[in-house]
Amino acid sequence: MGALLLALVLPAALPASAAPTSAPTSAPPSVPSSDPSSRAGRADVPPGVTAGVAVFDRGSGSFTEQVNPSLPFRSASVVKLLIALDLLGDRGPDALPAQDRARVDAMLRASDDDAAGHFWTVNGGGSIIDRMVRKLGLTDTARPPATHPGHWGYTALSARDTVRIYRYLLDTAPAAVRDYVMGGLRSSTRCADDGYDQHFGIPGAFERPWAVKQGWSGFGSGGCTTPAGAVPTARTGGPAVAGVDLARPALHSTGTVGPDDRAIVAVLTLHPDGTSYGKAYTDLGRLTRSLNVPGATRSAGTWIGTWGADVNVRADSTTTSRKLTVLPAGAEVLVSCQKRGQQVSIPPYTNDWWVYLPQYGGYVTNIYLSVPENQVPGLRLC
């Protein structure tokens, strides 16, 4: 291959086509569409997805959305909220040893699994969940099944209990605990410690201010720049235990949205076996964008599907520009404008147009967009 192609990370297989267009005819179809500024308030659950949804308006003290709010899901990393609250108790973070504080920081911001495993082991495992159930008045939350006692991510959790956790954190917990935990969630990193892109759902659908704790389980690749020495691995489970599905891929987005944490949002989802991370990422994003979330400012731009694996996001519209990260394979992305840049050739495709992804702060060659033309129709110039 020439130097130009070596500068790109190519998908596993290029589709065959005789026409040099920006996207192959076999790429997943996608119709660009801008989100309206407001929604009527009906959760749009994608086909094949099992969802538990609860949106609570702290301004009115009422729910604006509820879908299967009491249905228990395996929590994945959302349980790290309970692990942190149990550790802190009524103390502020200053009471923690420096090493433990560093672990909590990593657990909340980058969803560090080693930190969660450490606290799970030293603080009694399932007893953490029992204590939090009593303290917070949770009704659908339970420790992992006896067959998987060390799997903290198998803790059962519902959307309505997730709302209760955030309500306790915002309205009841000591100010030092609230500010510390919420500060960590507001500082969520795009790339989690295990190489998963964790800015799906709430961070994709809404502009800041937001604070999030995400969860994922059962995927083999996270579609993000992997830290040196780390290898993303599938977090696979087993059959349903006590009504909780431990097998199907799970993807959850939880947190607060808007000034003064106006809305609490919990979107818990299960996807069909074999669903890719990019597909689940896209479906969860569409579901979250359909919700009536008081106080939210919706992200402006056009959502467009992508194709290919390990697609680079770069600081500018050239293949030699600094690589910022890679996209989850096949994920839908928000684009705000387009411009001409370096011509990219992946025979038989050639394109010199690039789009800007505001949520990534970088550019992607239009070759990887699921649109029929080199330019995105109707998208403004950068």
Rank of each mutant, 00 (worst) to 15 (best):
K323S: 12
A315G: 01
G308K: 05
S321R: 05
G308D: 06
V313E: 04
V313R: 04
I304Y: 09
V293F: 06
K323P: 01
L327R: 04
W303Y: 14
V293E: 07
A300M: 10
S317F: 00
R314A: 09
R298A: 03
L327V: 06
I304T: 00
I304E: 08
L324H: 03
P328S: 10
N312R: 09
A296Q: 07
T325D: 15
V333F: 01
K323M: 13
T320Q: 09
R322V: 04
T318S: 11
D316M: 00
W307L: 02
K323Q: 13
A329S: 14
G301W: 04
A331H: 00
V293S: 07
D316Y: 09
R314M: 04
T325Q: 01
E332S: 13
A296M: 07
T306K: 07
D316E: 13
V333C: 08
W307Y: 10
S317M: 04
T302R: 14
P328H: 05
E332Q: 14
L291P: 00
W303Q: 12
K323T: 11
G330M: 14
G330S: 14
W307H: 07
V313L: 10
P328R: 00
P294C: 12
N312I: 12
S317T: 15
V311P: 02
E332H: 10
T297A: 14
G330F: 14
